[in-house]
Amino acid sequence: MTKVFTRPEALNDVELHYCPGCTHGIIHRLVAEAIDELGIIGQTIGVASVGCSVFSYNYFGCDMEQAAHGRAPAVATGIKRALPDRVVFTYQGDGDLAAIGTAETVHAASRGENITVIFVNNGVYGMTGGQMAPTTLAGQVTQTSPYGRDVKTQGYPLRVCELLAQTEGAAFLARTAVDNVKHIREAKAAIKKAFTYQLEGRGFSLVEVLSACPTYWALPPAEAMKRLGGEVLDYYPLGVYKDKGAETDEK
């Protein structure tokens, strides 16, 4: 018998601090699998952000830098410009990327910065106790939208891939999800493609991974996955929002 599924080497053999059913663990593994399959662990530098995934510097088996809240794309830019031959990725949540780090994200994309952003969107601030995020759905109850997000006063959930699709510099933008096995496999393929694009020097790549937060959605993990596959996917359609490779390769 041969092993058909095992822990990727790029994921350190340590316990993850995440809550039961938190999908960060799945996404960590997918990133690690992509790194392993491309054989790039020794040439990769990851950037951890602030939020639940802050400790990702303990989990990925490559060199890591931990960035201030929202600043990961700027930190990654600094690394990439210093070491253009290295593979540089950020791992960021939705509060980090789509609120405090919006400027860093948009401009890294606009510059076509040759980095890969893994954007985990679960619609809440988890680390600080379940506050409303820019991506929280309308009507969703959080600690800071206790009566449900009221779009009249609290605004609308932000669709990041659609926003970034307007930038010339973005080479690959995809929205994926981890609510079921098929979607998880698609997410993995998108992550691997993003890293491949970086290796090919094509420019900025971002894979949004719609994710579940059972704890702050106040749902059992299986129910959280159902909500993810339902109303969350309804608002955030899956798909490839930009693929410069496909565009140029066709020509």
């Binding site: 018998m1 092993k3 822990r7 316990e15 059913g21 663990g25 799945i26 998880i184």
Partner: peptide
Amino acid sequence: IGCAFCATICPDTVIEVEK
């Protein structure tokens, strides 16, 4: 059947699959 669905969705990489 070794489909590895369980391992794929496991957030904590608890499961190994052999075939």
